[in-house]
């Protein structure tokens, strides 16, 4: 509850921070927009058109009131509505991110717990080695490798996004399988490590000894008494990983040519397309904050101590 309320000032602060940060850029978008040989007058005219001639605070105030009305402005270069652009591109990026998160959670938690239960033995060693590989592999390189071996060589999945192939839902999802795997790899590795260590820590607890002393079967001890407590730090990590996945999506999208938010953001950074950069920051932060609120609820469910009342 209080997290939900805290999210609003957080979003506001983030936007403000980035708004003022971007003002440091010495490049003049109006000049960049009009090309090298534009006259000073036409540049000034363009500046006025974009609203850049007003004082910073006025610009800030305008931007703020627009944001509150869910108006994210227009692309400086194309004049398109930013909200529409994001609306078109967000679904694919979000599918990519949450698909990767699902893959990471399922495989990471499974492998981590397997390793913890076999600590010091062969399965543990294998998981440890594989997860340290997974954490070290750059996701865009993994994407290149996957694209080469599974698309170019064996042709199981498409290597490059094509608008015709992705018209059906099935084709769309099929095209996202490889990007999801490439993106989820390092998150899976991190979650596996966290699951392993938190499971090992929980197994040392007094209440596990109590559960054994009660004569519960080992499977029940693990399923009922250990897992739930071990999940608490994993939930915290999942929040952090979501944020990392959103960042990572930018690179994976670039390899597979996926028309998501990432390419939009990169392009905006290169051209200092301020409305897009701001919207990009706000939207990604919004997603991270929302995910964290959901995770907080999960956290409270797992851990009665933090529940109110």
């Amino acid at each position: 509850m209080s997290r939900l309320l805290a999210a609003i000032p957080l979003m506001f602060l983030t936007g403000t921070l980035v708004f003022f940060l971007i003002q440091f850029n010495p490049v003049d978008p109006a000049a960049a927009l009009l090309g090298e040989d534009a006259s000073l007058a036409s540049i000034a005219e363009k500046r006025a058109e974009l609203g850049l001639d007003r004082s910073l605070l006025v610009q800030y105030g305008d931007w703020l009131t627009d944001v509150v009305r869910f108006d994210l402005g227009t692309d400086w270069f194309t004049g398109e509505s930013v909200l529409t652009m994001f609306g078109d591109r967000a679904p694919v990026t979000l599918t990519l991110v949450f698909g990767a998160l699902a893959i990471a959670l399922v495989s990471g938690v499974g492998l981590g717990i397997l390793a913890a239960l076999k600590a010091g033995r062969l399965p543990d060693r294998i998981v440890t080695v594989v997860s340290s590989f997974g954490m070290a592999i750059p996701n865009f390189w993994a994407a290149i490798l996957l694209a080469y071996f599974l698309s170019v060589q064996v042709r199981w999945f498409p290597a490059i996004w094509s608008n015709t192939r992705t018209e059906t839902i099935g084709g769309w999802l099929h095209s996202l399988v490889l990007p999801c795997i490439a993106l989820g790899l390092s998150a899976a590795a991190a979650i596996a490590r966290q699951s392993r260590s938190s499971m090992i820590a929980v197994l040392q607890k007094d209440y596990i000894r109590t559960a054994l002393a009660k004569g519960l079967p080992v499977r029940r001890v693990i399923r009922r008494h250990a897992l739930r407590n071990a999940a608490i730090p994993i939930v915290s990590l999942a929040g952090f990983q979501t944020s990392a996945l959103i960042g990572g999506a930018i690179f994976v999208e670039s390899v597979f040519n996926v028309p998501g938010l990432g390419s939009l953001g990169v392009d905006a950074v290169l051209r200092k397309n301020t409305p897009i950069i701001l919207a990009f920051v706000m939207v990604t932060t919004f997603v991270v904050v929302m995910v964290n609120i959901v995770l907080d609820l999960a956290y409270a469910w797992l851990n009665p101590k933090v529940r109110p009342g």
Partner: peptide
């Protein structure tokens, strides 16, 4: 900490991109 939390709430790469947008590539 309010400031730190604000920066950390933004995905690290996105934040870095915003800073790059400000100071140049």
């Amino acid at each position: 900490m309010r400031f730190v939390e604000t920066v950390v709430a933004v995905p690290a790469v996105v934040m870095a991109m915003a800073i790059i947008a400000a100071v140049g590539t």
